[in-house]
Amino acid sequence: MHPLRTRLGLLALAVLAPAVLAAGVSGAGPAAPAAATAAAPAARAGAGNPLAGRTMGVYRGPMEQSWAPYQRATGAKKELLAKIALRPKAKWFGAWVRDADIERKVEDYIANATGGDPNVLVQMAVFRMVPWEHDACKRLPSKAQKKSYRRWIRGFARGVGNAHAALILQPDGPFALCVPKGSKVPSRMIRYAAKRLAALPNTSVYIDAGAGDWPKDRPDEAARFLMPAGIEYVRGFALNSTHYSPTSVEIGFGTRLVEELARRGVPGRHFVINTSSNGKGFDFGTARGKHPDHAKVCRSRSDSHCVTLGIPPTTDVTSPRWGLSAADSARAAAHVDAYLWFGRPWLFMQADPFLTKRALRLVRTTPY
């Protein structure tokens, strides 16, 4: 996918009360994301789950691309867009935010998303590596780029401070496997970030490990770039950030990756799965459309092999509502901290801008 280009609107920041508890949301109407219910026990997603039992904050302001379209909408359209705009989800931060500005931007985001409540959980994704994606296969970071990366990460860490945060580190992680001459430079840079951010008192870091279909059903390949990236310092890894793989596939792949990491001397890792895009999950390589990053959206609830919203953000990973097998429920209970929304299928090429018609179809066709 392409790097995010932040879309700054003219809308003034509205700091409202946080929405949606970590226990899960039903999605049974436009008010559901803004309602608070009792939190699920941490044991549902593994003992000591740092994400469980906390309200998940919702950012309301111009740094969120769905917010202005939601505010402009009226009637039934506004009710539908609420299913995206009022869901807790991860804000992506990257090189489009200057080194000098990142600390303040993160502070502003957290203040808005938490409403000033220090117990609320915020979600963010760090997409700061330059070069990255296909460019990373052609060249390594320059000395100046490495220095800037470290400066930016330090500023980001200061911005997070004591906040309770779930942090996805460097989406599209498997690109670390294609760097020139097998260099470990990008992985070492991610390692720097992993160690620095994991040292924050209330931050849970999950390094992006790709998806069950990338590297294709190869936990050993995923472990090959997670090990030099500092997986030993963090809570675990993240799956499916830019893909559409079914949740059951990701549970199975993630469980095997947990076992592979343990064999390599890093036991006890946990993971989170992006479910924003996999309501009718399929293999990324079989996506319909002009480009897999902009795969066809479902036309109806009975359509298949298409993109629609998946399980709403929750730490109640074994709920019968998700239709998991008994085996997958057991695996999820042992290893999965949460189903989160850190993918963005409502954006063009999962990057920018917000596409209202696409977003409305995502909402209308979701089975959840």
Results as ranks from 00 to 15, higher is better:
residue 226 L to G: 08
residue 226 L to T: 09
residue 226 L to S: 12
residue 226 L to V: 11
residue 227 M to D: 14
residue 227 M to H: 15
residue 229 A to S: 15
residue 229 A to P: 11
residue 230 G to C: 00
residue 231 I to A: 09
residue 232 E to R: 08
residue 232 E to H: 12
residue 232 E to P: 05
residue 235 R to K: 08
residue 236 G to C: 01
residue 237 F to G: 11
residue 238 A to G: 09
residue 240 N to P: 05
residue 241 S to H: 05
residue 241 S to F: 10
residue 242 T to N: 07
residue 242 T to P: 02
residue 243 H to N: 07
residue 243 H to T: 12
residue 243 H to Y: 10
residue 243 H to W: 03
residue 244 Y to Q: 04
residue 244 Y to W: 13
residue 244 Y to K: 04
residue 245 S to Q: 07
residue 245 S to N: 09
residue 247 T to C: 03
residue 248 S to P: 00
residue 249 V to K: 02
residue 249 V to F: 07
residue 249 V to N: 02
residue 250 E to M: 08
residue 251 I to R: 02
residue 252 G to W: 02
residue 252 G to F: 00
residue 253 F to P: 13
residue 254 G to A: 08
residue 256 R to F: 07
residue 257 L to W: 01
residue 257 L to R: 11
residue 257 L to C: 12
residue 258 V to P: 12
residue 258 V to D: 15
residue 258 V to H: 08
residue 258 V to L: 08
residue 258 V to K: 06
residue 260 E to D: 10
residue 260 E to T: 15
residue 261 L to A: 13
residue 262 A to C: 08
residue 264 R to S: 03
residue 264 R to H: 06
residue 265 G to S: 10
residue 266 V to K: 01
residue 266 V to T: 04
residue 266 V to H: 00
residue 266 V to S: 05
residue 268 G to Y: 09
residue 269 R to F: 04
residue 269 R to E: 06
residue 270 H to P: 09
residue 271 F to C: 00
residue 271 F to A: 00
residue 272 V to C: 00
residue 272 V to L: 01
residue 272 V to H: 01
residue 273 I to R: 15
residue 273 I to G: 06
residue 273 I to Y: 08
residue 274 N to E: 02
residue 274 N to Q: 08
residue 276 S to K: 03
residue 276 S to P: 01
residue 277 S to W: 04
residue 278 N to F: 15
residue 278 N to R: 05
residue 279 G to W: 13
residue 279 G to P: 10
residue 279 G to C: 06
residue 281 G to T: 06
residue 281 G to P: 03
residue 281 G to R: 04
residue 281 G to D: 00
residue 282 F to P: 00
residue 283 D to L: 13
residue 284 F to L: 07
residue 285 G to A: 03
residue 286 T to I: 06
residue 286 T to C: 01
residue 288 R to F: 03
residue 288 R to Y: 03
residue 289 G to E: 08
residue 290 K to G: 15
residue 290 K to F: 14
residue 291 H to D: 13
residue 292 P to S: 07
residue 292 P to Q: 08
residue 292 P to L: 13
residue 292 P to M: 13
residue 293 D to M: 12
residue 294 H to P: 13
residue 294 H to N: 15
residue 294 H to R: 12
residue 295 A to W: 06
residue 295 A to I: 03
residue 296 K to Y: 00
residue 297 V to P: 02
residue 298 C to L: 02
residue 298 C to V: 03
residue 298 C to D: 01
residue 299 R to E: 15
